[in-house]
Amino acid sequence: MTYRRLGKTGWDVSAVSFGAWAIGGSWGSVDDDESLAALHRAVELGVTFFDTADVYGDGRSEQLLAQLKKDHPEIRIATKAGRRLDPHVAEGYTRENLTAFVERSLRNLDTDALDLVQLHCPPSEVYYLPETFGVLDDLTEAGKVRHYGVSVEKVEEALKAVEYPNVATVQIIFNLFRQRPADLFFEQAQKRDIGVLARVPLASGMLTGKMTPRTTFEADDHRAFNRHGEAFDRGETFAGVDYDAGLQAVKELKEIVPEGLSLVQFALRWILMFDAVSCAIPGAKRPSQAEENVSAADLPPLTDAQMEAARAVYDRHVRAQVHHRW
């Protein structure tokens, strides 16, 4: 495992870390014992940073991570707040609500202070409300939160968020299908010492290379019910790429992958080619998935030709669908 600095937090975190959405819910059936086995295997392989949210399984993911931390107190856990609001509107990001969300996560994670709390893809207007970030400052001052950041849908939101001096991290979708953050945001993140968490790194599993036109998903899997943004932002599912177009892009990407590597390893290593990225946070429901993810951290750099070829696939099949939207 290799480690990178997570911006203003000063922490060194595993370059390939662990996203805990899938072990909470919305990804089909999941078994807690198997999830815990995946979490423990990740730690054995050097993973030190885990990302979750209060809405992943209505606290299920946080509670599993609390169990992990009892055995491994050295790990860092990031969670998120805001998506419990119903309706999810900017006006809901009040002192009362944010404080209640933080207190609930403290209970779920069985801790006195949250390592990192992130606003969970709030409406764009929230980034223009200094008072919201003032609440996070106060929660930090009170010792409830060690650091705070944001999880965003759009590059523009990320650029606005980093203007607040105490924002330490930005979580943003960045993968072979969502390359826009590298154009401007990464430069600003490095200039302001912002930790960057690359989420949805495998495009909801599309970049595993295992999906076909006949692949089906369980009814409670967002890949079945959110392909057009029916439940939340469309960009969260297959990175916003049309399913058939994604399959065609994957077919061409497989031709670039060096012999001996999987597309998963290639996709994660591609993300780590960007120095602004602190860590990628792929999910894993089984120990074998954690092993494959983590192995990407120690791979040699991709070649210039491979990077150019990957960009060409993006330009041909994906750019027109996503680049201007997020």
Rank of each mutant, 00 (worst) to 15 (best):
N226F: 04
Y93T: 00
A276C: 12
V318G: 06
Q190D: 12
L98C: 07
L197P: 05
S17R: 12
R192S: 04
L106T: 08
H40Y: 13
L202F: 12
S262Q: 08
R146P: 00
P213W: 13
G92I: 03
L109K: 07
F18T: 09
K285D: 10
V150L: 03
E153W: 12
M1L: 13
R234G: 11
Y314V: 10
G209P: 04
K160I: 01
A189C: 14
S105W: 05
N226G: 05
V250R: 02
M211D: 13
G24Q: 11
L116S: 09
K251Q: 15
A113F: 01
Y243L: 08
A267G: 11
Q289N: 06
W326G: 03
Y314G: 09
L263I: 11
L139F: 04
T52N: 04
G209K: 10
A66N: 07
Y314N: 07
V145L: 04
V241M: 07
P300C: 09
P201F: 07
P73Q: 06
V294R: 08
S295G: 12
P258D: 03
F186W: 13
A310E: 06
I194L: 05
D33Q: 14
E163T: 03
M1F: 05
P130R: 06
R41V: 07
E44S: 14
T94K: 04
L39T: 05
Q67K: 15
V170H: 00
P73G: 10
R234S: 10
M273A: 15
A81E: 02
L64F: 07
A203T: 10
A276N: 09
S26Y: 03
E74D: 14
L247V: 11
V89K: 08
T111Q: 09
L64P: 02
F274V: 12
R5I: 12
H88V: 05
A142Y: 02
K254F: 06
Q118K: 11
L119N: 02
V277A: 09
D242Y: 06
T94W: 04
G59A: 05
P282R: 12
Y127G: 01
G149C: 04
V126E: 01
I23A: 10
G92Y: 05
V135I: 15
W27Y: 15
R107S: 10
G82M: 04
A20D: 11
R83Y: 01
A198F: 08
F101R: 00
Q248K: 15
S124Q: 13
A142E: 14
A231S: 13
